[in-house]
Design a protein around this nucleic acid. Sequence first.
RNA 1: GCGAGCGUAGCUCAGUCUGGUAGAGCGUCACCUUGCCAAGGUGAAUGUCGAGGGUUCGAAUCCCUUCGCUCGCUCCA
Length: 544
Amino acid sequence: MAEANTGDRMEKIVSLCKRRGFIFQSSEIYGGINGFWDYGPLGTELKRNIRDYWWHTMTRQREDVAGLDATIIMHPQIWKASGHVDTFSDPMVDCKTCKGRFRADQTAEIPCPQKPSKMVSACHGEKTAPRAFNLMFQTCVGPVQDDSAIAYLRPETAQAIFAQFKNILETSRQKVPFGIAQVGKAFRNEVTPRNFTFRSREFEQMELEFFIRPDEAVEAIAGHLASAADIGQCQTALGNDQTDWGWEAWHKYWVEERIRFYESIGLPRQTLVEYWQKPEELAHYARATVDILYKFPFSKRDAQGELMGEELEGIAARSDFDLSQHQRSSGKSMTVFDEELKAAWPKLEPAKQAELKERYYQNRLQYLSKTGEAPDKAEKLAREDAEALTKGYYLPHVIEPSAGADRLALALICNAYSEDQAPDEKGKLETRVVLRFHPRIAPIKVAVFPLLKNKPELVKKAREVRDLLRPWMNVFYDEAGAIGRRYRRQDEIGTPFGVTIDFDTLGEKGPELKDTVTLRDRDTMQQERVKISELLPLLLGRIR
RNA sequence: GCGAGCGUAGCUCAGUCUGGUAGAGCGUCACCUUGCCAAGGUGAAUGUCGAGGGUUCGAAUCCCUUCGCUCGCUCCA
């Protein structure tokens, strides 16, 4: 299986996507529009399978996650509170002399590329005035288009979860720790869309905000925090006792959980990179972030020549930053009342009480100071928060696994794409293009063929089999051309199974083969003989 | 947004330098053939050569503008 060079491979994938109806450029007949992509018939099925399986795994299969489907346009204040209005717009300066681009606030710290002894702000290059690059799409709500009407298309789905946190808490009968999941479109006016659909301006996110107790509350209730060794066992812990899990345990748990998800739809661990962001790379609100990267063909290589991977998902431990921000910005309380905490607190030693209270106070004070509260006010608020903790009230912390649906679709296509050698009818080796999708996410699950089209009995029987399977899975029926050609067409779009109705099915070779069909496996091209009556349960077992 | 390269049939591409009015392979469709792994037969459709403008008797070819793609700066689910 000779691998073409990576550029080649990516080109073949892009071309296959268009040729077979996975992905088209948006608005193509008008010349296209940069950073926007449409999914064709097969791509739509693929993406729907991804979304559905994510939803299935993250919410319906769990006791502790509830769903949300919020609007794309929300109150603009949300994006002030979240920090997107300010931090999503970096004024940039271009240097016409050296062609460099620099953040306007950093020109005094970055050396000039042409004359490194001087900083950019002091070099002789001819520079443009600072220009704002706000990555949020703006629109106006209502007929009057003035500043008061400005609204934004959401740049992430997460903020709606925080904004609706209290409503969901009160209506879902969930208690911390629990999560809120959402799948939906998000929009970023990327400077440079790149790498096929990888960096698009309109994309779909699959996000979970998993709310947990602050460590101080965990310690008050459980008496201790799960140790490093306990954390090492997280991967099998669903259903186990989690009362002593602090944020590190939950964070690690979700990293493992998410990697298992990727494995379960056919991305082997060696195609993924688990990247723990270094302290200096962390966003200001994050205590830890793990990126799950997939080794795309267009990924850069490290010094050893290994693909470094591109981000599919980020799993951030965001402390109580987001709920705090919305609490301050909206003036509405975002705290929860925790009966277990209230009951546990009076039973603690006074020294322990003091220690936990002090730690909570320090954390709140640090947050409030960082966000610019006046020192005396910050101190007062932090005292109040610490006092509330002793009564069972706190702001939940959050672990955020946030994945890109389109990026995952692209990763699955890249991962599935393969070329192998298969003999044609004369035994000559031919190149076969196969998308080795995991059956769970394959757009079409099974293709049904009559061996020959010109035999009405075969066609009739094949249509019966098609109709038998159709209510249960996506079936494709094809009677055109030679049987081998039909198999190959299905291989190219990743259909895992092929069912062929032949003369044995009609009973020509005797009663023992009557009403049996051949079931052909895409990857091995092996066939097995299966009774029609057993076909449905067999296939259902293999595609779930 | 800036710099470099590119844009011809559904896909991959030839033709562009040296203007004369568009081709190949694969694919698609129909009919025939078919006895389990695509390239048997016959026939068919498809391009205002990315778009717009200019030069010219004549532009896929030269010039300008614009849109899109690829790479770099920047950003990131």
